[in-house]
Amino acid sequence: MSTLPLIFKKEGLVERHQIEGVDPSDRYFNRSILVHRTANGYFAKVMYEALTVEGQTHPSIAAAVKDVVDRLRTLGFRRMRTRPNFKGRHYLAEKETWIDYPDEA
C-alpha cells in the first residue's frame, strides 16, 4: 500500500462498490457506489432511479461508503450490504467479502 499523501495521488474515481438491499417500496435493489478521491479524502455516491445520494468527504474509503449507506437508511432503505467490485480498473471477480449494515432496531 502506498504511503504517499493524498495530495500526491491522482484524484477521481478509485473504486466501485456493489450495494444490495431493500428500497422504501419493499423492492430488492442492486446498484454501484462510486468512490472518488479528492485532495481531502474520499467521497461516494450512488444513483437509484431518479435519486442521487452523495456523501461527504472522509479520510477512508470504508467511511465514505458507510456515509452513503447511512444516508440511504434515513430515506427508508434497509437490509443493505456492500462489497468492492473494482479497484481502479481491476475487476475483483466478486471475490471480496460482503459487509453487512444491520438495520437499526
Rank of each mutant, 00 (worst) to 15 (best):
M1A: 14
L4G: 03
L4I: 05
L6C: 06
F8L: 12
K9L: 13
K9I: 06
K9C: 09
K9R: 15
K9S: 06
G12Q: 04
G12V: 09
G12L: 03
G12C: 09
E15T: 11
E15R: 04
R16V: 15
R16S: 10
R16K: 15
R16A: 08
H17W: 15
Q18R: 15
I19H: 06
I19Y: 04
E20T: 14
E20C: 10
G21C: 04
G21A: 02
D23M: 04
P24N: 03
S25H: 10
D26W: 12
D26C: 06
Y28T: 10
F29H: 10
F29L: 12
F29R: 00
F29Q: 00
N30S: 14
N30W: 12
R31Y: 08
S32Y: 12
S32R: 00
S32L: 10
S32A: 12
I33V: 14
V35M: 01
V35N: 00
V35K: 08
V35E: 01
H36Q: 10
H36S: 12
R37W: 05
R37M: 02
T38E: 03
T38F: 13
A39F: 08
G41C: 05
G41F: 09
G41I: 11
Y42W: 05
Y42F: 15
F43Y: 15
A44F: 04
A44Q: 00
K45A: 08
K45Q: 14
K45F: 12
V46I: 10
M47L: 13
Y48G: 00
Y48M: 02
E49H: 12
A50Q: 15
A50W: 15
A50T: 11
A50Y: 15
L51I: 06
L51W: 10
L51R: 04
P59N: 11
P59W: 06
S60N: 04
I61L: 01
A62I: 03
A62W: 01
A64W: 08
V65M: 00
V65Y: 00
V65R: 00
D67T: 05
V68G: 05
V69R: 02
R71T: 01
R71E: 00
L72M: 15
R73C: 01
T74F: 10
L75T: 09
L75N: 07
G76K: 07
R78W: 03
R78K: 14
R78N: 10
R78G: 01
R79Y: 13
M80L: 08
M80S: 01
R81S: 07
T82C: 12
T82V: 11
T82K: 06
R83S: 04
R83K: 14
R83G: 01
P84N: 00
N85K: 14
F86N: 02
F86K: 07
K87F: 09
G88N: 10
G88Q: 13
R89N: 12
R89W: 14
R89C: 11
H90Q: 14
L92P: 06
A93K: 15
A93T: 05
E94G: 13
K95L: 11
K95N: 08
W98P: 04
I99L: 14
I99H: 10
D100M: 07
D100K: 08
D100I: 13
Y101W: 10
D103F: 11
D103Y: 06
D103S: 08
A105L: 08
